[in-house]
Amino acid sequence: MASGLLKAHTYIWFVLLLAVPTLMFFSVRNLNFNERNNTPVEESEIVGDIIAVDENPQFRTVLYDSPRGRLLELVVKQPLQSASAILYPVVDGERAEKSLGQISTQGSHTFLVEDRFEQFQLFDPIKNEIIIEIEF
């Protein structure tokens, strides 16, 4: 190896050995290497007699009777993957005229429902698609 090349390499590696590990250390020093637990804590506010429960990876639906009346709790576990979401009761296999409400955030949503409602549907009016049928 030519002497000039050996000298050049020596200087370069001297600098690299000082600079690179130092910079590496200071860049990661404050980082958090733990995997964040992304599953949300499911909020549940049920006070009453549970009639039926339906569970899947995306939603948990609980129909129950409370002092206020019959309630439907819809827990959105994973972020919604729809352009919009409206909750409807299903009567005789069809979506009812009047909707129960709009769902957009994760977490618990509770609605007062008539006693006759046993099936429900989450519907996306923007894309005109059924998101999920909730049958207990």
Binding site: S27, V28, L31, N32, F33
Partner: peptide, 28 residues
């Protein structure tokens, strides 16, 4: 010989880039 400068730049590009967000012990 600038390959060595490029090497240092690349290491820091990863440490100050991807590693700041996707921090895993294995890759570091």
């Amino acid at each position: 010989m600038l390959v060595y400068l490029a090497y240092a730049l690349v290491i820091m590009h990863v440490f100050l880039g991807a590693f700041q967000q996707d921090s895993y012990v294995a890759t570091a």
